[in-house]
Design a protein around this nucleic acid. Sequence first.
DNA 1: GATCGACCACTGGTATACCATACAGCGATG
DNA 2: CATCGCTGTATGGTATACCAGTGGTCGATC
Lengths: 234, 234
Amino acid sequence: MTSRERDDSGGTRKYETIRQELRSRILSGRYQPGDPIPERVIAEELAVSRVPVREALRQLERDGLVSIVAQRGAHVREFSAENMQSLYQAREALEGMAARLAAERVGETYLAAFMEKFAGLADGSIDMDPTAAAELGNEFHEAIARGSRNAAVIELLATIHDRVRLCRRLAYGHASPAWSRRAAAEHLAIATAISDGDADLAERTMRDHVSTWARFLQSRLAGDSPRPGPTEAD
Amino acid sequence: MTSRERDDSGGTRKYETIRQELRSRILSGRYQPGDPIPERVIAEELAVSRVPVREALRQLERDGLVSIVAQRGAHVREFSAENMQSLYQAREALEGMAARLAAERVGETYLAAFMEKFAGLADGSIDMDPTAAAELGNEFHEAIARGSRNAAVIELLATIHDRVRLCRRLAYGHASPAWSRRAAAEHLAIATAISDGDADLAERTMRDHVSTWARFLQSRLAGDSPRPGPTEAD
DNA sequence: GATCGACCACTGGTATACCATACAGCGATG
DNA sequence: CATCGCTGTATGGTATACCAGTGGTCGATC
């Protein structure tokens, strides 16, 4: 778990619920990149004071979803093509390490459920709408991060994954079935390497996967053709 | 424009100066891991209100130097041996990527000053006290991060480097001349690979460097002999 | 004497009010 | 008519006061 999600079952900690709410609005697209997020407006809307709103905005800034500038206000973060490339390179390094560590540490069964589904998606024996497939991919990557058993990697990847979701929605909307299929195939290869305990292969496959899709993202931003390339689900 | 603040970072923004102050106290060892950092005490001590202190503590929590728990207070973060290993693995991935990108992107001259000094330190023709040598190493790693021209990598490594400094001080104090020498040799090898534009070699050398020293750190924590191993300056 | 419970002092969390700065709009001025 | 500057209004930044848990301590009780 990251440092921001402590248990605390009670009603305190409003800023945490506010953070969840704002995060949801940003990732869902209700707030578009560049949109201002004034503390007072949110505070009034959620019937709280500015303080927890401010707290939440700082957290979101830390997660890279919000940009706060001096006396000019908080805005939904904007991502340039260069920003996205940078983000994906950092992600490639961290997810590659996560895959390596997962291959070294976890048992061969913990990805079994994923492998079964990915195999079915790849060969077409399972049908799944793109949104669900994308969500499955997200969960897969998060499972690998957790499987690394490395708190630092988990925490850093958590802050990256939200940004990735946002970038993905910016570059294109949802994925076509063809992309989902390719994504599933690549995910299956990664899961197989991890389950086999082949750390080198796991890292290499994961890095290829991430960088391939980064190139795809760039091509989409440049307006290239949308033929089946990498996956949308990573 | 001499002392005129160009953007917003000058006159206002007390929490920024407070953050610097607290960070300095933590990294210098004045505040030991586990020590409480009550908002009110700091506020009174620095003659400000709790609000900017709170803001600063949040930033430090984000940087991994402070741990804030529910209603129990903020404390200087403690690092277990496992935490340190995790941190260094994440660092290995990110610094490896930074070295790769730097090799691909920057000209061959930007590390020339470092290479000259490291060469002298490695062969003994230059003498430097361990503290200065360690600082040089820090600057070297930061220079590589900047040389990656990758905002995400730079940002993530910035939050890691502070933690690394803290861990280093926890595992041992300063470095012996012998360690500094080995550090310089490894740094020289990294700089050479980057300057040669050999991205693969740069990444590999950097990862070896980081992981070697991570193992050394672990051995020190376990109480092993302090014979010249990796560097202290990374 | 050991144990359990109530109390109290401590912490961070929240609410409200006020301050300083940045920018837009508009009017005076050349 | 263009330009400069003032002012109004927006923002985040800060200060103060109060609320709500938490943990330790001390006393009553068995």
